[in-house]
């Protein structure tokens, strides 16, 4: 799952039938520091998120599972509105070493 910011909405009248009633949000994927990372995408709204909200999203089949109707053709859904993101920036060591390593 990943973080995103709602930067707009999308409307499509001519579309596949299963997409009727699905609210489309334009989202900017975010990295751990809540900075934009990657290009804008359109997500189905499964959590009544609004403009400017930070949300967390899910991709693939799980995106379709998040919506009430079954088998909606979506590959990205906003499934929760984020209240706070608390990242410990002092953690810098993300390297695995060869041989035996013990973790505290």
């Amino acid at each position: 799952m990943l973080l995103g910011k709602i930067v707009g909405t999308a409307v499509a009248t001519i579309k596949t039938l299963e997409l009727t009633g699905v609210k489309l949000l334009v989202v900017q994927p975010l990295n751990k520091n809540l900075e934009p990372s990657g290009s804008l995408q359109v997500a189905a709204d499964a959590t009544q998120a609004g403009y400017g909200d930070i949300v967390f999203m899910v991709r693939a089949r799980e995106a379709a599972l998040a919506l009430e109707e079954k088998f909606v053709p979506v590959d990205l859904s906003a499934i929760g509105v984020v209240d706070t993101v608390d990242v410990d920036r002092s953690i810098r060591d993300f390297e695995l070493s060869w041989g035996y390593s013990q973790f505290a």
């Binding site: 973080l3 751990k32 499964a46 967390f56 929760g80 706070t84 993101v85 608390d86 410990d88 695995l96």
Partner: peptide, 14 residues
């Protein structure tokens, strides 16, 4: 293998 670096709090969610 990953390291936990933070937590997300969300009340309105699936």
């Amino acid at each position: 293998i990953a390291k936990v670096i933070g937590t997300v709090v969300s009340t309105i969610k699936h």
